[in-house]
Design a protein around this nucleic acid. Structure first.
Lengths: 250, 250
DNA sequence: GCTTGACGCTGACGCAACGTCAGGCTGTTG
DNA sequence: CAACAGCCTGACGTTGCGTCAGCGTCAAGC
């Protein structure tokens, strides 16, 4: 197999293969008499590993070290790649959750602190700065301003949307007062209405994602406070209803 | 807030912030009389977006274009980032599944074609090459050789492990012949034994992952063939038992 | 009020991982 | 046997910073 074919198969450019040859990361096991690179099955194997490690962010030099380590059998590579991929999956999930949280926070007019937003980028958590920053940005008017700017809807749109969600929230409170269970038909229907409202006005919100938001309503105190201000016990009520609704759809 | 603090908060180096200033991607909104960069809350907002887009693989120039597009409100960015992150999640899941498939294939002595392994790197699928490569590598002895090399266990180890899994497979066949349902206690216990065997001898295999393997046993004909050779109907039987066992553990 | 050590500033060069020609040979298809 | 796709080897360019060098700034302690 020659460069072009390997390149097409692996989804890289010919130039990349040239590069890997030059730096000794992947030398084709043969050449034709005319000097054409000839790749054997074992070379494809190696290329596959190279690309996976590269995708995972390893510099090529380290990739070479990993692959040339004589004490590492193929199974070892698979286990390591599996571990690294799972880590990445977890990190990405966390980032998705963070973005979803921020979307919902914006809709409810809750502001997240900068530390919170950056949290997801690393597990390091620099305590010292956290405190200091908190103090600096606590509740300056700068924040209020940036809050202001972030609303791009026209005032009319916003008022209409706000009225809609106020309405659902009010009816949730009524259902709670009337003693309807959080998993009752009535509560779940309201939850469904809530979900469709979000989807219409803000962002696409499938049931699964809605359930995630529900969990947040009781786990994050600011979201809890938002609902508790309307009626005591409402945060837990809405949270349960939303999750019950998601469950009946699945 | 000055460079050092912002850098620590966001998990980047000071040099990176200098760079972003120089290329105009993120200019701090103020400077002290001494020339120190002063970052305002809005700058942190922007930095956050920059880092997310960068993480997602956009070149900085495009990031700038996205952020400076006057027709894109903040909600638009959140939606786009959400979409991109979900895509990434999906891709990573696919890669995890591919690695798991390869691990299991190795254990059972099934060899995957190079196209299959590279599949996960892109959805492009170059039909022409696929056919050609198939023909070239079909079943040369090169494959057999590379198969040989990949076994790093001592012969003794391998024989012991093989005997163990043969035993479970035989008892699965017995249960099937005796008419025990695939979701019976007997079948699920065998599935659990199967799972623990994999975990002990090859790689850590939690119930969820085991369920994924189960699905593969009926979806991939080569895995199906492996079990059908032992007893007709065994592939479906083991698959169901494995998934039932995973469900009872969850 | 003075030192000192941490922090900040601006060039300037370096580096990884290729992209992108240029100039020339190869090989296969009509 | 011509022509056109594909391969070769330099060689220079690009992105996204890392890493000094050389020099100002500032808060703490003496």
């Amino acid at each position: 197999m020659n460069v072009g074919q390997v390149a097409a198969l692996a989804g890289v450019t010919v130039r990349t293969l040239h590069h890997y040859d030059r730096i000794g990361l992947l030398r084709p096991s043969g050449r034709t008499s005319a000097g054409y690179r000839q790749y054997a099955p074992a070379d494809l194997d190696r290329l596959h590993r190279v690309l996976l490690y590269r995708e995972l962010g390893f510099p090529l030099e380290e990739v070479a070290a990993l692959l040339d380590d004589p004490s590492a059998d193929p199974a070892e590579h698979l286990r390591r790649q599996h571990r690294l991929l799972r880590d990445r999956l977890e990190r990405t999930s966390a980032m998705v959750a963070a973005v979803e949280k921020e979307m919902e926070a914006r809709n409810m007019g809750i502001d997240l602190t900068p530390e919170e937003r950056f949290e997801v980028f690393g597990d390091w958590l620099p305590e010292e700065y956290a405190a200091e920053a908190e103090e600096k940005w606590g509740d300056t008017e700068a924040w209020a301003q940036s809050q202001q700017r972030t609303r791009a809807m026209t005032k009319e749109d916003w008022l209409r949307v706000k009225a809609e969600s106020d309405d659902v929230e009010r009816r949730f409170a009524e259902a709670l007062a009337a003693g309807a269970g959080a998993d009752s038909e009535r509560a779940m229907d309201l939850a469904e209405e809530h979900r469709q409202q979000i989807s219409r006005n803000f962002y696409d919100c499938p049931p699964e994602m809605h359930a995630g938001l529900g969990r947040m309503y009781v786990e994050d105190e600011r979201f809890t406070a938002y609902y508790e201000r309307i009626a005591p016990g409402l945060a837990q009520y809405v949270s349960t209803a939303v999750q019950a609704n998601a469950a009946r759809q699945g």
